[in-house]
Each structure stands twice: as structure tokens, then as C-alpha cells.
Amino acid sequence: MLTKRIIACLDIKDGRTVKGTSFIQLKDAGDPIELAEAYAKQGVDELVFLDISATNEKRKTLADLIKKIAARIDIPFTVGGGISSVEDAAPLLDAGADKVSINSAAVKNPELINDISNAFGSQFLVLAIDARKIENQWAVHTHGGTRSTDKKLFSWAKEGQERGAGEILFTSMDHDGTKNGFANDPLKKLNELLQIPLIASGGAGLPFHFAEAFTLGKADAALAASVFHFGEIKIPELKLFLKNNQIPIRLQL
């Protein structure tokens, strides 16, 4: 049976992980490769590296970092942050990334979804959407959630699928950081709307929340960052909890 995926997200700035970690003793907690390896060993199913470097100059070193990560990590991983053209995506995929994710650049230029998907195949492309509920509408935001747009979550996700996105990564800004659980209602609605896999993001605080994202939200995968980095939720324990709650999940060999 196809299992639900648990995804850990690492923010990268100038080649270093941004948030510290206390979930495991690392020689260098700022080293994304060491952290990624530790997650892979713990049984995480996928990794996302989000580059939040301020300048394009610093971003150019990203491909080198990706190459080092791909050499060491034996699970699939996605790279996102600042990709706004096929030319931006190509060196990352060449370096060994399994997928790239795009967000603000796709809102600004939706053709980008078609371009990347046509160039590499839709399985290489994740469309990330940040949205918050304003007057009963899920409004899409860009630039790390700082700018509101005219786009609405459901129509934008559908358009993304039609343009060739291979997966949708939906972050509810209303839930992000609350640790009160994922946005299960819009997730469920997205799942009914989409034929491509759906990743839930924002709101994880307890193992139970992951179970809800899969049972109530019907998500195919659930992503978290800080609860993993700070050891509040440990991946082996989370996976065992989900397994014991009849959620199809991969346990380590």
C-alpha cells in the first residue's frame, strides 16, 4: 500500500540551516548536509530545502550545496526558493535535486509552471501555495506571506495542476506556527479538487495533528519544520504513532 509521507523542511541561508536544532546532537547544527542525513536516518520520507538567501549572488552557491546533499542523501528531496525560470531550475535538477518548488514567481508568471513542467516533466515540479483566510476566502500570498494577491487558493491550485504542476504544497498561514493542527478543511477540499498529490503544511504541534491531516484533510504528505528541528516531535515516534493509528506509513528497514 502506498504510504503517507512525512516531510521535514530545512531553511537554508547562505549555505547554512537557519533554525538551530536540539533534536539530535550534531557536530555542526548549521550544516544542512549533516542535519539532512540525521533526518534520513530517522526515517523521514522526504526532505525540502528552502533557500532564503537574500541575494542571487549567494544563491548561486546553492547548486554546489545540492550536489553535496545528493551525494550523501538516499531519499528524495525538493529544493525551493527564488526559482523564477527554467534556467534557475536546471542546475538544481542537474545537481541531483529530485524536484524543485516554486511559489511567488509562479503567481507573478503562471507560464513558469508550464515552462518547467514541459522542460523536465511534471514530477519534477511542486507548486507551493501560501494562503490565509480573509473574509471567508483563502487568499494566496507571496514573498514569504508578506504580500497578498488576487489569487484564491482553490482556483490557483487547480490552475497549477492544469498547467503541469506535479504536486501542490499548501501552507495555511493561519495555522503556521500555531501548533494547533493542520488546515484540514481546505486540505480536504483541495484533495477533492485535485488529481495530483497534496502536501499539508503549517500547524503541526502533536503527532495527532499528522494523523488528522491524513484522515480528515486527506493529504498525501505532511510537512513540518520547527517541531522536528527542536525535537518536540521525533520522527520514529511519530511514524510509530501513525502506524498504530492505522495510517499507512513506512517504517525503517
Partner: peptide, 24 residues
């Protein structure tokens, strides 16, 4: 959904794959 994307298990019926891969 299609594509079939993610981790799924193996049921073996040949011996060229290591036996411990059953259900992995």
C-alpha cells in the same frame, strides 16, 4: 492519484532480490 508517487511495499516472488526486502 496518478502518478504513483511515494513509498510502497514489495512482495517478492523471485530470489535475485535479498529475502529481507519482503514487505519493505
Amino acid at each position: 492519484k496518478v502518478p504513483h508517487m511515494g513509498w510502497n511495499s514489495l512482495q517478492l516472488n523471485s530470489n535475485w532480490l535479498n529475502n529481507t526486502l519482503q514487505d519493505q
